[in-house]
Amino acid sequence: MSTVSHNEITVTGLSIGYRHKKKEVVIASDLDFKVLKGQLTAIVGRNGIGKSTLLRTLARIQPALSGIIQIKGTPLTAYRNLAWAKITSLVLTEPIASKNLTVFELIALGRQPYTNWIGTLTASDTHKINEVIDRLTLNTIAHRKCFELSDGQLQRVLIARALAQDTQIILLDEPTSHLDLHHKVSILKLLKKIAQETQKTILFTSHEIELAIQLCDKMLLMGSDGFPFGTPRHLTDTGAFDKLFPHESVTFNSETQTFQVRD
């Protein structure tokens, strides 16, 4: 059993959704899970079930409706903006506004929480950026503009930016969308490697359930009746994957760990 100090993210009785004036639109409630340091966790489920809403709530982009999110034992809301930026970094699905930045410039923006009022990079900032560029083998494209990159390259660069932000937690919203199978796998393997080597806590939403089963330490399944959380093995054994989608479309084969289309 893990001790409290190893719990990076503790979610208790969390309810997520939107608040319109006084009316609450609850998307998902009674979420409970604990994510440990150095683990790669996938959040999966059908469209509209609230994966991205959960991720945005964890990222403090939108407030939780009720329940508690604790990061390293401290409530999410207790962090100040800048302190928070040094704990959690983001990779979003929405395209970045300006693709005229070079790869180096974009990654360098990750150092914003540490730089001075005008954003001057110190020697240690540059060192960190170059370290990230080396780690993700982006050296050959470091001085290219972002509009010249392929989708796969751009995704690696956005992950590099998050790494440059030097946070313990990295949240990614559908990092594998728009990519072909090869690049999907390479991005997920990259995340796995980062989690193992740097002991960072990585959470991402995805539709690549079969890949996630093979690569993730933990998974959170967001289904219509409950949110089972655990290792892929455990979730397979308890038949949780089978309940994820309506049976008229697919069923889960626990032998092969794949989904099969129903006629």
Binding site: I61, N81, L82, A85, L90, L92, L109, P113, Q165
Partner: peptide
């Protein structure tokens, strides 16, 4: 983008 800006403090 604004969400990234927010995430960087």
């Amino acid at each position: 983008g604004e969400q990234y800006a927010q995430s960087m403090g």
